[in-house]
């Protein structure tokens, strides 16, 4: 049985199914941020169209590495493209010198901690990373 499960898992990984068994992803902001934020707002932030919060604070947007399942879920559900394409679009903005508010890429453990400490930050992490974490507010859960 174990061999069968391992074989199935290996088969799944070979066919590139990063989201099939992935944890839900939550979009988080600092708990001091009380602004109403829609999924369209989040898209505009990560597409570099909106760079400040309503209170004037400059948004600090955090990404996960494109290879992570959570990044794929976020990119597909919010941005409507693959995580690789989203990362390439951000790189293109930076390389072309038109990025108004360049994003940062960090590991999920760091993203939740940074968002908890930084009033103007926004990020997304696997749900487990946000559970019980103080200093953050969950905006959306992406399954």
């Amino acid at each position: 049985m174990k061999i069968l499960i391992i074989a199935l898992l290996m088969l799944a990984s070979m066919f590139g199914m990063p989201t099939a068994f992935a944890d839900p992803v939550v979009v988080i902001v600092n708990s001091a941020n009380t602004q109403n934020i829609s999924s369209e707002d989040i898209k505009n932030i990560y597409m570099d169209k909106t760079i400040t919060w309503e209170n004037g604070g400059k948004i600090a947007a955090y990404n996960l590495p494109a290879e992570e399942a959570a990044a794929e879920i976020f990119a597909r559900k919010v941005l409507g493209m693959s995580a690789s394409n989203a990362a390439a679009a951000e790189s293109n903005r930076v390389v072309s010198n038109v990025a108004r508010n360049p994003q940062q890429t960090k590991r999920d453990a760091l993203v939740s901690s940074i968002v908890a400490k930084t009033p103007h930050a926004i990020g997304y992490v696997p749900k487990a990373r946000a559970e019980g974490k103080s200093g953050i507010r969950v905006l959306f859960t992406l399954e």
């Binding site: 390439a88 679009a89 790189s91 293109n92 390389v95 072309s96 038109v98």
Partner: peptide, 15 residues
């Protein structure tokens, strides 16, 4: 780069 249309700015080969 001249801000004109799309390709004039978004022209880098990796993208």
């Amino acid at each position: 780069f001249t801000p004109a249309g799309i390709w004039s700015v978004d022209h880098y080969p990796p993208f």
